[in-house]
Amino acid sequence: MKSLFLTMIKDHMYSKRYAKSTIEAYLFWIASYIRFNNMQHPSSMGDTQVESYLNHLVNSQNVAQGTKAQALNALSFLYKEIIKSPLSLSLDFVKSERPRKLPVVLTQTEVSALFKHCVAKHYLPCGLLYGSGMRLMEVLRLRVHDIDFDYSCIRIWDGKGGKNRVVTLAVELIPQLRSQIQLVDSYLQLDLKNPLYSGAYMPHLLRKKYPNHNKQLGWQYLFSSHKSGPVDLSGLKFVQSRGYLIAA
């Protein structure tokens, strides 16, 4: 049985527009903290238990500084936003002594070698990752209308932390992007012939505001799956819209 307390925290974080990865990480540390303290409810605990748990992570688990910081952030969120009793700013716990890993950055020669071995269907997404500095999920969630050829830019909506931003578009990728959009359009034309096709997913109640936009080219995923599958909703079967999956 799922914890109602953790489910409540998850729903609260979703309402605050936290990223899915952040929600999963915070829930992991909160659940670990509760198990460490013999399943006591966090409202009955405080600074002392948090200090003991952080010391356990460093002394027994030998976690890195960044990992311990993430656990502390999760517990700080728990007590500030959920319990409504913020932790003390003067917590006393052992600091991690594991050295930070130096970041590894590919040279131009290594990047060129990487693209030479990149298969054709993955070349464009990888080119956007490298040329525009986008995160992986940002690339996979791109819609056709996010590509602005006139200004040579890409608009990213609901990125990390629910923030929007604009990144540059490498002009070398424009011919491939136009070809990819033509491919997406061909998928859409096939889907539109199916009377059960439900259209692309639209967030934040935009489906109700613009009921016909989900079947327009601009709202289709740029890197959509090559297939769609049935999904059962209230006893009625609809054709699921193509998700942002690159064909394997």
Rank of each mutant, 00 (worst) to 15 (best):
A170C: 12
S132E: 06
L140M: 11
C126R: 07
F115M: 11
K215L: 11
V104G: 07
D148W: 02
Q108W: 07
D150S: 10
L183R: 10
L217W: 11
L124I: 01
G133C: 04
K121H: 14
L128K: 06
K193E: 15
L169G: 07
K237E: 15
L106D: 11
D150Y: 01
D158H: 14
N164C: 06
N164L: 02
L233S: 12
K237T: 15
L142P: 01
S179T: 10
G133M: 02
S234Y: 03
E172I: 03
Q180I: 03
K215N: 09
D148C: 00
F115H: 09
C153T: 15
V105L: 04
G199T: 02
V166D: 13
V139I: 15
R207Q: 14
L136A: 09
R135S: 05
D191Y: 01
G161D: 03
N194S: 05
Y210C: 02
Y130F: 07
F149M: 01
G133T: 01
Y210Q: 00
G131D: 07
C126N: 08
K163M: 15
V119R: 15
D150P: 00
A120N: 06
L169H: 10
R207P: 00
G161I: 12
Q108T: 07
H145S: 10
I174P: 13
R141D: 14
L128N: 09
V171T: 09
P195V: 02
S228P: 10
A200Q: 12
D232A: 00
L140Q: 03
K208C: 02
A200M: 09
P230T: 02
S228E: 08
L102H: 11
M137D: 05
I154P: 01
K208T: 02
V171Y: 11
G133K: 03
